[in-house]
Design a protein around this nucleic acid. Sequence first.
DNA 1: GTCTTTTATGAGAATAGATCTCAACTATAT
DNA 2: ATATAGTTGAGATCTATTCTCATAAAAGAC
Lengths: 161, 161
Amino acid sequence: MSRGAPTISPVSTMPTEKSSWAAQAADALSAAGYRRGGARRAILELLDEQSCALSAVEIEDALLARKREVSRASVYRVMDELEEIGLVQRVEIGQGMVRYEPVRGGPGHHHHLVCDHCGRLEPFTDDGLERAIRRLSDRLPLRVSEHEIVIHGACETCASG
Amino acid sequence: MSRGAPTISPVSTMPTEKSSWAAQAADALSAAGYRRGGARRAILELLDEQSCALSAVEIEDALLARKREVSRASVYRVMDELEEIGLVQRVEIGQGMVRYEPVRGGPGHHHHLVCDHCGRLEPFTDDGLERAIRRLSDRLPLRVSEHEIVIHGACETCASG
DNA sequence: GTCTTTTATGAGAATAGATCTCAACTATAT
DNA sequence: ATATAGTTGAGATCTATTCTCATAAAAGAC
């Protein structure tokens, strides 16, 4: 699967934060009543460095590689906590796979493109799509959740190959 | 993929309105080089009766209940074949769950709403969404596949409860 | 019909991601 | 430092799906 993050239509990241995402996240966790454990810290640091979404297995492997091993259970636990507080977003990329993406400051509402060949994940925003979904949720007998939309296809590289 | 799989010929299944979907599907499978086995026939018949999408497990259980037991492997195998030929559509409803929906004649392009509480699956069409996606695929570095879009939320019943 | 060849099928093992259990560990308040 | 309550790791467990392979059964040949 892919690594790296050649973002082509990036979300306006509204950056220039004085404290790192990891620090903010740690504070938010404290505020939510969680203590500061080793597993949490290691995971937060890793996520903060990554610019693209990681799967639980990738997180586990990456931490193992840098000799800060964290158990699988902890990865899932921490990701659940972070999602609950809104610090990471689950992205279901299909085939039962989930990636976790740090939510950084700003409005940041966006959706994702998944390349079904190489697994690459691209965030994007689109007002037209947003409008369409808003109208939909008025018209339909379903309260649309905040969950993002995942569009599948073939990325440039894979489409041409 | 299966080992000695016959060559798949393109979908030219002009929907003949008079024959059942099961019959059409059986013909299409024959045309694609598959033989007619008991498992396939049973699955086709079941799918033809259902109006909503079924999961592999539901298919297995339903066939067991009507004493036409079919092995799990066969369910997945047949669903793969049918999807390949375009006779059923996979609908990934999240949490690693997949449902299979018979594709009946006509344009029939539609998307799905999934209630994350009760699992209900609701098809819908929306021109606005269609337009938004079309524009997106022009603008974005990804060739959007035919795969449908799944919108998550809470259905009326679950939202009020 | 009978034979032959090739495909279909079933039973269960194997995978993979995710979840659960619980004893040991440790952060925090006192 | 101690008590207490939240954290963590190791591995069992679960679930959906895929794989293996021996056997059953189509389709075509004779």
